[in-house]
Amino acid sequence: MQTRTVVSEFLGTLLLVFFAVGSAVLAVDFIGTVGIALAFGFTLLALAYALGPISGCHVNPAVTLGMLMARRIDVRTAVTYWVAQFTGGIAGAALLFLLAKQVPGLQTHGKFGSNGYGDRSEVHLSPGGAFLAEVVLTFLLVFVVLAVTHKVAVIGFDGLPIGLSLAVIHLVGIPLTGTSVNPARSLGPALFAGGPALSQLWLFIVAPLVGGVIAALAHRLTHPVSVRDAEAGDVPADEAGTA
Results as ranks from 00 to 15, higher is better:
156 G>Y: 03
155 I>H: 08
180 S>G: 10
188 G>F: 13
128 G>Q: 01
142 V>R: 07
171 L>T: 02
146 L>M: 11
178 G>P: 09
105 G>W: 14
200 Q>F: 04
122 E>M: 14
184 A>M: 12
91 A>Q: 05
170 H>Y: 12
153 A>R: 05
102 Q>P: 02
122 E>Y: 06
135 V>C: 02
138 T>I: 06
169 I>G: 08
91 A>M: 13
123 V>N: 01
111 K>P: 01
80 T>I: 11
161 P>V: 11
125 L>E: 00
166 L>T: 06
175 P>A: 07
141 L>E: 00
91 A>K: 03
82 W>L: 14
100 A>S: 15
69 M>T: 11
176 L>F: 07
187 L>I: 06
197 A>H: 06
169 I>E: 03
122 E>R: 08
171 L>W: 06
112 F>R: 11
88 G>W: 11
153 A>E: 03
94 A>P: 02
111 K>G: 04
151 K>R: 15
190 A>D: 04
144 V>W: 08
119 D>E: 14
89 G>C: 14
103 V>N: 10
141 L>R: 00
74 D>K: 14
191 L>Y: 08
159 G>M: 08
73 I>K: 06
121 S>Y: 10
113 G>W: 13
66 G>C: 08
181 V>S: 09
156 G>H: 02
116 G>Q: 05
66 G>N: 12
189 P>C: 12
116 G>K: 05
68 L>A: 10
137 L>G: 05
114 S>V: 03
102 Q>L: 15
189 P>H: 11
139 F>W: 02
153 A>G: 03
113 G>S: 12
155 I>C: 00
181 V>Q: 05
179 T>K: 01
152 V>Q: 09
